[in-house]
Amino acid sequence: MSKEIAESKKNTVLFIGIVAFMLITLIVISELFLRLVVAPSDNFYKQLNFYHSVENVDIAAFGDSRMSQGFYPEDGSRVVNLAYASENFEQIAQKIDYFLQTKHADKIILQVGHHMFADYRFDDDRRDYSVFFSPEQPWRKQLHLQDPELRGQLLNYWQLFFLAGFKIPNQSSFSDNGAVLLDMEMTIPPTEDQFYYRKERIAEHILKDGFESRETWDILRKTIQRIKAENVPLCLVSFPVTAFYSEPVYELEHTVSAFKKIEELAAEEKVPYLMYWDYYEDEPTYFRNLDHLNKTGAREFANDLIDDCGF
């Protein structure tokens, strides 16, 4: 073998060796980073641990970010908020199913809304809730790198970690009863950024033709029936939003029909449905942004909601 070929062979082996070493090192470091730094400050993992710690409660609330951030029950009460941002009905249904298998709630509040039928909620790269919320909790035996949402945000976490001085900052606080709370207040009059955010937010939640035939409606109906079968009183709720958000959304044809459909479903299943969209129309200080309550609004609203559900 000529020297040229021998050198090339050596360098090829060097290339493969470096790649193997770097990939293994990066994977080990990333797993440690996610496990020891990211997960402890991540609201999903806080919520997950909280969910598994809950056993018997008076009221359990399920939903997405509007519920998670907008329902802050009194401390010390046996009311828990088990919602998490951006969950779709499939995930919520699964969570409720596991809850009913092993835990007990005297009553359940379930958030519903047109936005929960939007396309992006059904992306492929979602967390498999059977891994996280089933009583066996297989996630505890898995790598955190296997969590698609942690892995997908890995580079952002690294960036945050270095920019914030070797920690992961978290703007929200996690309450004892599972609510994710934010103290900030929406700027009135809305800023240019909020107009942009509204446009984006409305666009991503526009329902496409044929949304009525989504399997999600069946999942919602079956979830309601499942809760009723356990003889647990149920209350459906649509959370308050600002007029700045609701006014243009009311103009959208599919949104109105989605709310009608929810009303019809609630009537057919004989469960109360409380539509609170305009509830805090004149209270912009209760919101952290155009469609999420802040800590003050969440406390105020939790009390009203529990009363109005009339359990």
């Binding site: 290339f15 790649v19 770097m22 990939l23 892995r151 890995l154 580079l155």
Partner: peptide, 20 residues
Amino acid sequence: PTALAAFGFSMCVYFIFAGV
């Protein structure tokens, strides 16, 4: 150059793995 290329390749794979 071999080490630099291997470093670049590994970092690319890591970035892709992390969702890019």
